[in-house]
């Protein structure tokens, strides 16, 4: 099934996240990832939700989310017209013999080593889901001890912005 990215502007209140998350489980929608943080306006948070499903599901998700009083605006992002990123932190087993090879892979992927110990390397990796998956695949041979991911965040390219309180879709 296709993945769809929704940008959802919500009131920055306590409890909003649980309303949104609850809606997904209650209505049987599948979330691939959900990332949330405050926007340039401290009263507004922005959620990036990646939904797994067909057009019917995405339409239903959008309509049901819109019914939540705390949801201000929803936009489905077109992948070709937006930039999407995810951050992953990966702790991989490393000793003096494997370390150089890992560092080489890190360089190729333009990732970054953020912590080192006698038998581990912790790597910061930013990118789209595919790139992170490919990177993970390359590191598996060394032994991944732990991995943590933020979930996707996305923003539209160029002058387009999601503005509150206007039906204008772009500036």
């Amino acid at each position: 099934m296709a993945k769809h990215t929704l940008s959802v502007l919500v009131e920055n209140h306590a409890g909003v996240l649980s309303r949104v998350a609850g809606l997904f489980s209650r209505r049987g929608f599948n979330i691939d990832s959900l990332a949330v943080g405050v926007t340039e306006d401290p009263n507004v948070s922005r959620m990036t939700i990646v939904v797994d499903g067909d057009d019917y599901t995405v339409e239903q998700v959008t309509k049901q989310l819109n019914k939540l009083i705390d949801v201000i605006k929803i936009r489905q992002l077109n992948p070709s017209d937006s930039v999407a990123r995810e951050l992953a932190l990966i702790k991989v087993t490393a000793n003096s013999s494997t370390r150089p090879e890992i560092i080489q892979i890190v360089d190729i992927f333009r990732a970054k080593i953020v912590d080192v110990s006698k038998n581990t390397l912790t790597i910061e990796m930013t990118g789209v889901a595919d790139k992170i998956a490919a990177f993970e695949e390359m590191l598996k041979q060394f032994g991944i001890k732990e991995m943590v991911r933020t979930g996707m965040i996305a923003i539209e390219r160029g002058n387009q912005v999601i503005k509150i309180g206007s039906s204008e879709e772009s500036e």
């Binding site: 019917y56 339409e59 239903q60 309509k63 049901q64 819109n66 019914k67």
Partner: peptide
Amino acid sequence: IDPAEIGK
């Protein structure tokens, strides 16, 4: 009046 009911 509820858009979510249409097509549900």
